[in-house]
């Protein structure tokens, strides 16, 4: 009896400790975000930001666009086979556009971004930490949060919404290719049904808000994991994995919450 009790007490203690650790890490991450994001960028800061836009944004463009094209094409193909049973294949454009704008573009682009850019950010910052570059920057009298982390954070925050727009555009075009050019849906009804059902603020605007939220969360997780990791090669590989796992979970979880708020009538 006694040992059973002390056993469960120990378990509760462990749970409590993990809870405390979690809160402490969240607190650190919050302070970290605040310290890096706040402040007016200098001229040099703009140049660094531009540099990171290239690495984070431009270099992720190819994978995002190709995925968008395929997803749009698959959507059109699947949608057509379902809609044609109801004789409603004119609604294909509406279906493709709404699924992309509201859900698939923000979510899939964010997941791809976490895998492509997020993991690279973690590894890069982690490597800078492991090779003492961050420490030596501090010793030279430059704050690495402002110099290294801030440009990457802002570049990620700006890039992902742009990538999401690209994803949607290419996806809708892919749907057009399959639906109109291949399956023979009337071109006029593809576009006009789309235009009749897509609202700029409600659908495109909300999709962009989702994308901005995902951008912040994914980049934040990526740079924080890089900055906070154990500076060994094992630590870097673990942190990179954590970045992808945590940001994917965060994106999917937040997507549900945001969808419930935006479209669920909450």
């Amino acid at each position: 009896m006694q040992s059973k009790f002390s056993n469960s007490a120990a378990r509760i203690t462990r749970l409590g400790r993990r809870g405390c650790d979690l809160m402490e890490a969240l607190g650190r991450a919050g302070v970290f975000l605040f310290q890096s994001a706040v402040g007016v960028p200098s001229r040099e800061g703009w140049r660094l930001w531009l540099h990171q836009m290239h690495f984070v944004g431009v270099l992720s463009l190819a994978i995002v666009l190709v995925s968008g094209l395929f997803i749009g094409m698959v959507l059109a193909l699947q949608g057509y086979t379902i809609l044609v049973d109801f004789g409603a294949e004119q609604a294909l454009g509406q279906m493709v556009a709404l699924s992309l704008l509201r859900e698939l573009a923000p979510v899939v682009a964010a997941l791809l971004f976490a895998g492509r850019a997020g993991s690279a950010l973690t590894a890069e910052i982690g490597l800078m930490k492991a090779t003492e570059q961050l420490t030596s920057m501090e010793m030279i009298g430059v704050d690495p949060l402002r110099r290294v982390v801030a440009p990457r954070l802002w570049a990620g925050f700006v890039s992902l919404p742009i990538l999401t727009v690209g994803f949607s555009v290419v996806g809708i075009w892919g749907g057009y290719l399959v639906g109109v050019e291949w399956l023979g849906v009337f071109e006029g009804s593809y576009w006009s049904n789309m235009q009749a059902s897509v609202a700029f603020v409600d659908d495109i605007g909300n999709g962009m808000i989702k994308s901005a939220v995902f951008a912040l969360v994914v980049t934040w997780i990526a740079v924080f994991q890089g900055y906070d990791l154990v500076p060994t090669s094992e630590g870097i590989s673990r942190a990179t994995t954590r970045t992808v796992v945590y940001s994917s979970l965060a994106v999917l979880g937040l997507d549900f919450v945001l969808t419930a708020i935006m479209f669920g009538g909450l």
Binding site: P161, I162, V165, M194, I204
Partner: peptide
């Protein structure tokens, strides 16, 4: 390209 894409979405997709 991002801005143009948004314009495309606005004009062509949401009418």
């Amino acid at each position: 390209a991002g801005i143009l894409g948004l314009v495309f979405l606005g004009l062509r997709v949401s009418g």
